[in-house]
Every structure is written in C-alpha cells, then in structure tokens.
Amino acid sequence: MLIVVFLISEALPVLRHVGLLRFFTDPSWHPAEGLYNLTPMLWGTLFATTGSVLIATPLGILSAVFCHYYAPPVLARPYRHLIELLAGIPSVVYGLWGLVVLVPLIAEVQPPGPSLLAGILILTIMILPTIALMADASFTNVPQQYLRGAAALGLTRWAIIRGVVFPASKSGLFTGVILETGRAIGETMAILMVCGNVVQTPSSVFDPIRTLTANIALEMAYALGDHRAALFASGVVLMAMIVALVVSAEWISRERLYGSDSEQTTESP
C-alpha cells in the first residue's frame, strides 16, 4: 500500500510537467531531450507477453496432461520433478543461457540475434512451469467419478480429457494463465539479457525490442529529475497492468462461477 503511494508520488512530477498524454504521443523516447514516448516499450512488453503466453499455455497444459493421463508412472514422476525444479530456477540463469546459447542460434538464422523472438522463447521456458504446475494441480482435483463415468461411456482418452477434464478444471487452468501472464509481464532480467533493448516498435519477430521492465532496469542507474520520474511512471503503468490482470481475473472467474454456463454448444474443431 505504501508502495503504491510512493510510486505515484515519485511519478507525479513528470505527470505534472509532461502530462499523461505525451507518454503516448511524443515522437520518441529520448528522456534527455524531454521526449517521453512509452508506446514502443509498451508494445514490446505486450508482444513478448502474448507471444510467450500463447506458446507456453498449450505446451504447459499438454505437459500436465502427459503427466496425468498418458505417461507411465515411471516417467510421470521424474517429469513432474523436472518441472518443479525448473520453476525454481532464477531468471538470471535463464537469461544467461538465452544470451549464450539462444541468441547466437537466432543470429545464424536472421541477424542480429537479440530479438523479440529470443525474448518470447526465453519467457516461454520461464513461465511454462507455472502453467504446467497449475494445470497439474487442477487435474488432480477432477473427481475420479467423472473419469470413470466417461470411460464407462466408451469415450477415448482424448475425448475424456477434452470433454470432461478440461471443463472441470477450467477455473484452475484459467488461474494458471493469469499467473503466467503476470510473471511474463514482470520479468526483467532474462528479457533484458536477450532482447537487444533497442527502443522501437518491432515489425518482425527478429527485431530487437525493449520492454518496460528492461527500460527501468537499464536507465535507473543514471536517470535524474523528470527522467527518473518517467521511469517511476512506467513502474506505475506496470503496476496498473498487474492490478488490471488480477481484477479482471477475479471478475471473469466470478462470472464463470455464478453466471449461466452459456458457452455450451461450442463446436470443437
């Protein structure tokens, strides 16, 4: 609570001097010259987050499905341990690996290497354990009787998973996605290390980008005055994004729980 107050109070000078609009309308991000356009970095954050969430969610859920329904017990246990272990690895270590292994690899395909793609891939690897563990936990909570009932109807394993397990664990999976999105938005170090940190709106996945978080980490060391306040303002933006995420998550899950379950006859492809 104190934190919010502080962030806002530190950001206030710039808001007063510069005005909220200029964060979006200024031609570029050159704080030294008094130009404060956050949009490219906002886009950077958005692209990297959506990209990684889009890749990590199916992979993570499939991982959990594998653990629960497909893997022989001999494989399922070590696999789960592996995922748990990865959830604990610090982001710097992921960043280091991305920098040393991934970036040169991408550079061979399409220079310069440090790019949105590298950022997305690293983020994917980082947030995958989050969604995988959440999905795993919510699959555990699916009542055994649903599974037996579905099997007794002669449904194939995949049909059971798609038609019964997924709907039954909907809210858990949803929470998992929210959590991983939050983690992806907030991630700083790994992104900083592999994304190239050029302030621009990317036009392809091979373009280097800079995210909001990386921007703060990079410039905080020497920022002064309005520049410093501008960085705090981007902190406020980040904070607002997280709050929006949490609130919308709560809102949607309430809607889902108490509202009419009206998304029935959805055709599955």
Partner: peptide, 22 residues
Amino acid sequence: IQLRRRIGMIFQKPNPFPLTIR
C-alpha cells in the same frame, strides 16, 4: 471403446459431467 459403448454403466453416485444438460 466399442465394448463400453455396448455396455452402459450407471454408478452409485450420479456423475453428470460439469457441463450443461445438453
């Protein structure tokens, strides 16, 4: 799969799936 289609089973505790009736 086909066997279980030929042989329906009803359990002690009603176990409709957490979906709509339809």
